[in-house]
Every structure is written in C-alpha cells, then in structure tokens.
Design a protein around this nucleic acid. Structure first.
Lengths: 200, 200
DNA sequence: TTTGCACTTGACAATTTTGTCAAACATAAA
DNA sequence: TTTATGTTTGACAAAATTGTCAAGTGCAAA
C-alpha cells in the first residue's frame, strides 16, 4: 500500500541485521562496523539513523521486551483451557526459537549489563495474570497438576521450556551430544514437559 | 606450609578478581584496566602473568569447566540412592549460586563467542554416567519417577534448578518480582523440584 | 655489601572503535 | 531545469583498549 520511503527500508534493514546478529548468531558485542558490513551499508548510517551504537542496541532490546509481553499476553489472554494455553505457548516458543535461538540470552546479558531495567507492565496484563493464576489453582484443586504456588509452577514450566533452548551450547557440551542428537531431544520436549507438568 | 611466593599471590589475586567480576557482577566484557583496578594492581601485570587478555579469559573459562566436571562427578559418583544424589546436587548448586550467580551465563556466552569448544570427558565419567542412567531407568520402572528417556529427565532437573538462578534478572522482570520476593521463591525451589520430579 | 633474579611500574606505540562533518548524490516538486 | 529535501558517503578526530619495553624496586643468596 503505502510506498515505503527509502529511509524506512534502510532503517529496518539495519535494525533487522542487528537483530539477526544478536539473536541468531549470538554476536552480542558486534561493533558498528560489523553490523554495517552485515547490512551492506555504510557505517555512518548507524549514527545517522540511531544517533549512537548504544541507542541501536537499546532499540533491539525494546523490541525484545515487546515480544516478551506479546508472548505473556498469549498465555494469560485467550479462553482456552489451561493445557491448551500451555501447548500453544510451547509451540509458539519453539517455533520462534528456531529463528532466534539466542534471543533470551541476549535479553539477559543486556539486563545484566544495564544493571537494571524495570518492565512496568500494563494494568490489564497484571489483572489477566492474576486471573490466570486463579485458573491454575483451580486446576490444582482438581488434581490435574501438582499443588504449589502458581509462580513456582510457572517457573517450572518456563525453565523446562526455555533452558534447553537458550543454554544449548552449554548443555550440548555438558552432556556431550552432537547437533543431530540434540535436535531430536528438543523435538521431544513438548511431550516431555506436558507429561511432567500434568499429572496424567 | 610452603611459603607462598609473591608471584603466586598476585597471580591468584588477578584470576580471582576476574572471576568475581565475571561470575559475581556479570561484567562479562571487563577490560584489562577494569580488572587491574578491581585487583588493585598495575594493568601490565595481566600481560606479564597471562600473556594476553584473552588468555586470562580462557583460564577463567577452564576453571569453570573443571567446576562443571566436579559437579557432574558428584551426581554420578557416590553410592547414595537417586533421590539423595539429586538433593545433594541441588544443595551444592544453590550454595554455589549464592556466590557466583552468573557463572553459568558466563560459561554460556564464552561458548557462544568461541563458536565452539568440546569438553571431551574422561572415559570413567562416561561410564559412570551410563550407570547413573541405568539407575534412573530402574527408578522409572519402580514408578517413583515418570518414564522418559534419562537425558530428558536430566534436562528437566537441570533446567528447573539452574534456569531460575541463571536467568534471574530476566525472570524477575518478566514476573515483576522484587528482590525479597524472588529470594523467597528461590529458597523454596528445592522442595518444588523434588515434588515435581518424584511421583510422591 | 653486592650481585642476581623475580617482580612491578610508567610511558609509549599500535590498533580498534566510535562519533562528527562537510560534501556528494538522488529524487520529487516548483 | 532549478530547487529543496532527504539520503548516503568518505575523511577526519577523539577516545578507548591492548600489548610492549626499558627501567626501577625489593629481596635473598653469595
């Protein structure tokens, strides 16, 4: 529809290239030169569009935060039963992890670097999360999942899902697994997680 | 006993300072100057003792690998029953995490940076791991833990234990928890993990 | 006390990286 | 065609970072 201005195209190109470098290849400390080269543009453009290297990094980080929120929304909004919500979330995450395996670690290292950063979530999300926790507790009452504080349940779930993806190089080394073996293992994670979390 | 040479003292001082910077404070990209300042020595000493910045980084990484092996040994060696082995491991890890919360993430980012690195484990550890997996399968047969490939069980266990510690800033933000709340949650992890992993 | 040796330092040089700026370029409107 | 606006470039300057080196220091053995 709207004719993309050349500006927008280059702007997007740079930011996407940075994202790929960070999330896909794990080059968390790429220099402006490296980013420019990867994008096939002049290095100066990074300063032109983003003011400074740091500003670009922050922008990518902000996009990451938005994606985190989107994901969170997905699990607390929607009227599906708990199990289906979780399944949907797993599928979504694993698909995304195929494209951006280092996304979570990048977000983490940025947070560590910046000493801190507060998300300050929207009120309605907080509300929905509360509601979701209540649903969880109902499920625990029914006996389909172990009784425990909802936050602990969420930690279990998130950990079992993200850790094997985010820490892949670490784990692959520790357990001495080759790429093929590890891919196979990951493909089985969904079933394993569900089996571990739901009582039957 | 043996009178520490001044050399050894300084050498250790530098390497420990680096370790603290990396593992404790998460300064994964500390410059030689920062390390020297933190150690209260002249920057040149880093080149004197370690040849180059990179060599120092590698050395810290190697120590990390050794610690990983030590930990792994702990869980596969020893004649305790499975549950006690795992409990021991949890205690050990959580204690260590108090001092070095960013250890795992540092190891990971180094692995990502260096593109790759193979552990090549000792034969006897491989053997013991096999034995441990058999023990696990026996336990599954008995019905105390869910039936699944042993490696998946280990992934579940390791994930639920390490992820909440290693990704703390990430999770604390996502779930909007303050330090006190999060500490409390971590203190309950051991029981939660055991409850999740063992059928009763 | 003097000599030798290991340890430590400040100063320098080379390199890398970032940010700025003026000029060149393209393109659409007047 | 000219003008105006926004985009891109190469060259330069400043800062940060690493590595080297020659000289200085302290201490133990001769």
């Amino acid at each position: 529809m709207s004719t993309q201005k050349k500006e927008d195209v280059t702007y997007e190109l740079i930011i996407n290239t940075a994202k790929n470098l960070f999330f896909k290849e794990g080059k968390f400390n790429a220099t402006t030169q490296e980013i420019a080269d990867a994008a096939g543009v002049n290095r100066t453009l990074i300063n032109y569009y983003f003011r400074s290297r740091n500003a670009l990094f922050d922008l990518v980080f902000e996009e990451g935060k938005k994606e985190d929120e989107r994901r969170q929304k997905m699990i607390v909004m929607s009227d599906l039963p708990i199990r289906e919500k979780l399944e949907l979330f797993i599928d979504y995450f694993l698909a995304q992890a195929k494209t951006y395996p280092y996304r979570e670690v990048y977000m983490l290292t940025q947070m560590i670097k910046d000493e801190f950063c507060v998300y300050d979530k929207k009120e309605h999300i907080k509300y929905m999360t509360e509601k979701f926790y209540v649903e969880l507790e109902e499920e625990m009452e029914k006996g389909t999942i172990q009784k425990m504080p909802p936050i602990q349940f969420m930690l279990n779930f998130i950990s079992m899902l993200i850790f094997p993806v985010a820490m892949r190089p670490f784990l692959q080394n520790n357990f001495e697994l080759d790429d093929v073996e590890y891919d196979k293992i990951l493909s089985e994670r969904k079933e394993i997680i569900l089996k571990t979390i739901f009582k039957n």
